[in-house]
Each structure stands twice: as structure tokens, then as C-alpha cells.
Design a protein around this nucleic acid. Structure first.
Length: 629
RNA sequence: CGGGGCGUAGCGCAGCCCGGUAGCGCGCCUGCUUUGGGAGCAGGAUGUCGGAGGUUCAAAUCCUCCCGCCCCGACCA
């Protein structure tokens, strides 16, 4: 992609798709306006290709539009949004995780982009456009050449220089800013771009929802101090809220892990959907909401580890019993009586993590607690080195590595663990007497029986699609890359940074996940590719054709994005297509309505049909759209 | 990267087990009729059966290797 996509500021969600080449190529390919029926040809005696200027909105006649809809559900599409985007002629796959947007799909993308632009500009951010190909040196400076992993697509140019495709742009923007901004007088600043990113996902799936090449809006703020970055963060948080509200999404901002971007804290904007890849937790009483991998568990108040009598340790023969369930069944115990120990390799160093047998270790928490770059479950060899036993019989007694324990161990006594010996477990083990725990921490996943870490209220779970993520970065990048400025006192200081992303294609897919029915997509007005579709029931009827044309011209004149279905198709086909592509309003022009001198309009969302004279209809449409924006 | 599945016309699929030179539905083209929820009739076009080797008189079908795609897992925006 070159950097030449047409853009620019705009008002009122109007898109920019001035593509003069298209008309010509379509004429050449399709010759004489096939599709447009006899009536239309008469009404436009000269044919619209000679006289009609498509104007700002581009092609808005169905007969000319490249809109290949499909009846069949594509066999490789699993989620609804993916199926519908293909059936509605929005996208086509080029290769795994890489998609082309067709005209209808790209119109929706542009609608979303323009909403984002308006809100970013309103929040004081400035649009820039940065390179996709980036040099290795920059990534070595931030340390991410080593730490980003295989998701960073690397390659060599003809001079054998290492490069990568930008998965995100902290390095580039920090480099730009450190070279240009010297003084506090130039701060704060917030730069954003809408640009293609590449992340070499291990497993792309769900169409445009989790793909490798995707459009993203990313913004980066630079402030003098912490109060400044907090303010920038809040502005972006508010802007994101407005953006997703305007897109018609039901969403929730949740506390999140910062992952490979880093920083001190972050919020993800989650569109609530059962097909979402992320699990969310939120409190039913207070405002607390978090990604499951981040959701905290308060340290228990009573920490009595010495309750009851400590019985003598015994080794019991447990042949072949490796899993918690097997051991429970064999010893006739509950998982709550067992302590599960998992050995991890933290940057290559073995660490033992203990949790109660009935709970699940949250590796993100473990990784953050240890502060390591790479955390993985230990392989058989490392397990043997630590426990001198095969996998399945690990226990904390007698091992010589760092031992950390989840809060769930507090209060446990006389529990079961592996014996570090094949086919044996220990019973009546006790912390303190039999082994020492270095630290207790919150290391497990929240469950529905847990309560809110803030207010003790009950928790609820949901699934969500992450469409946006805001990070308070602090000085992570400004320190490693030396982005400094001089303050009032001539003191050199590190800039405080934040970064803020929105996945554009994913937002579109998420909108579909939330707005569809058995007939197809049901676009929210603000991001619909067209706001109104005019459906002449019979294109060969002069009166119908004429009225449709008049209405079409008039709506365009009023600034309504109108698609005229001038194809010589049966009404049923047109209705099905209109429903599938999800246009919010459909005006039907046919004998039934014309008899009474009224036109009828059908709401895609509710199915409600209203009939009224043309003038009134136009007003109704304009105010309907206005409300929906 | 591990496990599973699939690759046959533009799309969705059958045929493969049991080898004999490819079929169905939708779509597409032509004509006539039809025209308010994916029309009917008649005629027609379209395939290196993912690729390369091998077995065989003969391979979509059996064998080997390779490629691509999808799902589950591991991993992670």
C-alpha cells in the first residue's frame, strides 16, 4: 500500500472515496449498463455514464457497483461477522490472515476511520503517517528486537540490512519526537495515524477479527510529567468512549494487562459479544471491570496457616496418578486438599508456583510478579532437574528453587503434594514445617465464587472483543530511547508517554457481531456503507423508474448516502440483498405504494414499514439519520 | 510447533473405501414467459480433480513427498 489513500478532515461522517478510475474501468468491462432496465435507460436517454458525475460519494448505483453478494455460507468462515462480511461482498481473503476490502467493506472502514478522526482531532491529537518498514536498530534500542517474538515479521533488504514490518509504532514516533522536540514549550503533544500494521499471528482466525495485516489507529502522547500523561490518558479514554458510542457498539472499558507494549497500566475497550476471544470480569456493585487475565483477587484477611494440629508427613504409593483428579479419586480427597505445583522456566531459571488443587494458575500474573520476559512451563528435562522425578509428582518439599505461592494456600494444612518421586505423593504436608514459601501473591484466575477486589460485591463474567486499548507507558520508551526535553529550569527530563490503539477492521467485525439477524447485517446508521437503499420493484416501469430517480437525486442532494438498486432483478432478489448488506432504511418504489401517491420505507432493524408522501419521507429520512449519527 | 480435517467448475458439495478418464445444486451466458421476499421453461459454457513423482494397460480414486487452507491446542495482540 502506498501512502496515498485519500483522506482529510471532514464533517459529519461523510466518507471520501473519490476514485475517478473506477467509472472508466467499469464501463469498459461491463459495456452498456447491463442490469439497469429499460425504464432507467429511457429516463436517462443518454446514459448516466456520459453525463452523470458520481460526485463525492462515488458510485451509488447498484448496477455499477462491484458488490458480489453470496447466498452460500463460506465453508471456512466460523463466526457470523466473517460469514456475513464475505456474503455481503465486503471482503475477500488473499492468504491466511490477509484480506482485501471491496467497495462496500471499504466504505464502512472509511466511516469508522472518519469517526475516529473527528474524535481524535477534537481531543487535540494531530494526524501523521509513519512508515511500515522499520530498521532493526530502532527496535534494538527499545529492546524489543529481542523481546517481541515471532510476531514481529523480520526480513532483510538487498543490502542485507535487517528490517521489520511495524506491528506498532512506539519506536518510530519516539525517534521522531526525540529528534524534534527539545523544550517543555513544545509539550504536550499527541500524534496519531491510521495505518496498516502487520503482526505475524500464530493463528489468524475469524476473518478480519484476528488477522495478520490490519488497519489500526494508533496515537502516542508526550507529556512533561505524570500529571500530564494522566490527563492525556483521560482525554483518550473519553475520546474512545465517544468513538465506540458513535459506532453504535455496546462496550465496556476494562483494566488490562499491558503485554508486550509495556507501561504501568492500561484499559481495553471491549465490545461485549459471546464470540469474543477475551473473558471479562465485572462487579455487580461498583465500577470495577477487568480482563480475566488481569482481574485481581484480594489477599484473604485471615491468614492462619497454623490452624489445627500438624500431622506427621507420610509418603503414599500412588501408581500412575498424575493429575489432580486421579490423585483425588485414588486418595478419596477433594481438590481443595491438594497443593498443585507447576515448575516454570522464567527466562530460563526454574521457579516453583504453588496453588490449591481446585484453582487455575494465571500465567500473566505469574509473569508480571516475576518481572521476566519469557515465562513458559518447564520441559520434562527441567522438571526432572528440579524434582528428580517425572512430570506429575512434583512437590515443594525438598526442592531447591524459588517457591512462590498463591493466596489460596493461606489457611491450608495437612495437604497433599507430589513426593518428587515417581508414583508417590505426600500427605499431611504443612508450609513452614516442611518447606518455606518465599512469597504469597495473587497468582490465579478469578472464579465466579470470588468477590470484587474493590468492594466485595459479586462478580459477573462476560466475553468481549478487544477493539481498543489505551496504555499509560510512562518513561519505558523515553528512557531506553532517550527522549528528553528541557524543563523550565533547564533540567533535562524524560518525557512521559501514553499510547492508544484502535483496531479498525476489528471494530467493523465487532459491530456486525452485535448487529445482525437471520437475514444479514443490521448496520448502525453511523457506520452503514449506505444510509438508504432505494428499491424500485420493477425497473422497466417508467413511472417507478422516474420516481426512484427523482428521490435518489433529492436524497443525494440532501447529503444522504443513498444506494439506488437500479438492477433489472426481481423484487425478492433486491430485498434479500438489501437485508444482507444491512442498509438501515429501504425505500420501496412499486405499484402498491404508488397507487396512493405515497412511498414506503422499511426499517432494517425493526422491520417496521411506514408510508408517506415523498416530501415527508425525505424529512423523515434526514431526521432518522441525524438521530442515528 | 503438536493433534485433527479439507483441497474436485465462480460458490456450496457428491464421486475416492471397491481404479475404467467427472457429476449435482446455486451462480454465469442466450431466448421466451414472469416481476412486492433469492421465478419458470428451453438451450448453453466452464474443470491442468492443489502440485510433483510413483504403481498400473488405465489414477480424482492406490502409494510417496511437497504446497495451501480450516479447526483444536500451545502462544499472543
Amino acid at each position: 500500500m502506498c501512502g496515498q489513500r485519500s483522506r482529510g478532515s471532514s464533517r459529519g461522517g461523510r466518507r471520501h472515496c473519490r476514485r475517478p478510475g473506477i467509472r472508466t474501468s467499469f464501463q469498459e468491462r461491463e459495456g452498456n449498463q447491463e442490469g439497469a432496465g429499460e425504464g432507467f435507460r429511457r429516463v436517462f436517454a443518454q446514459g448516466n455514464r456520459n453525463n452523470d458525475s458520481w460526485g463525492e460519494g462515488g458510485i451509488m448505483r447498484y448496477s455499477q457497483l462491484f458488490l458480489p453478494t453470496g447466498r452460500e455460507i463460506p465453508s471456512d468462515a466460523e463466526v457470523v461477522s466473517h460469514q456475513l462480511m464475505i456474503r455481503a461482498g465486503m471482503i475477500r481473503k488473499l492468504t491466511s490472515g490477509v484480506y482485501s476490502y471491496l467497495p462496500l467493506g471499504y466504505r464502512v472502514i472509511q466511516k469508522v476511520e472518519n469517526i475516529i478522526r473527528e474524535e481524535m482531532n477534537r481531543a487535540g491529537a494531530q494526524e501523521v503517517y509513519m512508515p511500515m518498514v522499520q530498521p532493526r536498530e530502532l527496535w534494538e534500542e527499545s529492546g524489543r528486537w529481542q523481546h517481541y517474538g515471532k510476531e514481529l515479521l523480520r526480513f532483510r533488504d538487498r543490502h542485507e540490512r535487517d528490517c521489520c514490518l511495524g506491528p506498532t509504532h512506539e519506536e518510530v514516533i519516539t525517534d521522531l519526537v526525540r529528534n524534534e522536540i527539545r523544550t517543555y514549550r513544545q509539550l504536550p503533544k499527541n500524534f496519531y495515524q491510521i495505518q496498516t500494521k502487520f503482526r505475524d499471528e500464530i493463528r489468524p482466525r475469524f476473518g478480519v477479527m484476528r488477522c495478520r495485516e490490519f488497519g489500526m489507529k494508533d496515537a502516542y502522547s508526550f507529556d512533561m510529567n505524570e500529571a500530564g500523561v494522566d490527563e492525556s490518558y483521560r482525554k483518550m479514554y473519553d475520546a474512545y468512549t465517544r468513538i465506540f458510542e458513535r459506532c453504535g457498539l455496546t462496550f465496556r472499558a476494562v483494566e488490562a494487562d499491558t503485554g508486550s507494549i509495556g507501561g504501568s497500566f492500561s484499559h481495553e475497550f471491549m465490545v461485549i459479544a459471546d464470540t469474543g476471544e477475551d473473558a471479562l470480569v465485572f462487579c455487580t456493585l461498583c465500577e470495577y471491570a477487568a480482563n480475566l487475565e488481569k482481574a485481581e483477587i484480594a489477599r484473604p484477611e485471615k491468614e492462619d496457616t497454623s490452624q489445627g494440629e500438624h500431622l506427621p508427613v507420610e509418603a503414599v504409593h500412588t501408581p500412575g496418578m498424575k493429575s489432580i483428579d486421579e490423585v483425588c479419586g485414588f486418595l478419596n480427597m477433594k481438590p481443595e486438599d491438594i497443593v498443585k505445583m507447576i515448575i516454570y522456566s522464567a527466562d530460563g531459571v526454574p521457579v516453583a508456583v504453588l496453588v490449591r488443587g481446585d484453582v487455575e494458575i494465571n500465567e500473566v500474573k505469574v509473569k508480571n510478579f516475576l518481572g521476566c520476559d519469557l515465562l513458559e512451563k518447564a520441559d520434562e528435562e527441567m522438571i526432572y532437574r528440579v524434582t528428580e522425578a517425572p512430570r506429575g509428582y512434583a512437590g515443594a518439599v525438598g526442592i531447591n528453587v524459588k517457591i512462590i505461592a498463591d493466596y489460596s494456600l493461606l489457611g491450608m494444612s495437612n495437604f497433599v503434594t507430589g513426593a518428587n518421586r515417581e508414583d508417590y505423593h505426600l500427605i499431611n504436608v504443612n508450609v513452614g514445617r516442611d518447606f518455606a514459601v518465599e512469597t504469597y501473591a495473587d497468582l490465579r484466575f478469578v472464579r465466579d465464587t470470588d468477590c470484587c477486589p474493590r468492594c466485595k460485591g459479586a462478580l459477573k463474567f462476560a466475553r468481549g472483543i478487544e477493539v481498543g486499548h489505551v496504555f499509560k507507558l510512562g518513561t519505558k520508551y523515553s528512557k531506553t530511547m532517550k527522549a528528553t526535553y528541557l524543563d523550565r529550569n533547564g533540567q533535562e527530563r524524560f518525557m512521559e508517554m501514553g499510547c492508544y490503539g484502535i483496531g479498525i477492521g476489528r471494530t467493523v467485525a465487532a459491530a456486525i457481531e452485535q448487529h445482525y439477524d437471520e437475514n444479514g447485517i443490521v448496520w448502525p446508521v453511523a457506520i452503514a456503507p449506505f444510509q438508504v437503499i432505494i428499491t424500485p420493484v420493477n425497473v422497466n416501469d417508467h413511472r417507478i423508474a422516474e420516481i426512484s430517480e427523482t428521490l435518489y437525486a433529492s436524497l443525494l442532494h440532501r447529503g444522504v448516502d443513498t444506494l439506488l438498486d437500479d438492477r433489472d432483478e426481481r423484487a425478492g432478489v433486491k430485498f434479500k440483498d438489501a437485508d444482507l448488506i444491512g442498509i438501515p432504511l429501504r425505500v420501496t418504489v412499486g405499484q402498491k405504494s404508488l397507487v396512493n401517491g405515497v412511498l414506503e420505507v422499511k426499517m432494517r432493524k425493526t422491520g417496521e414499514v411506514r408510508k408517506m408522501p415523498q416530501e415527508e419521507l425525505e424529512h423523515m429520512i434526514v431526521s432518522f439519520i441525524h438521530e442515528g449519527m
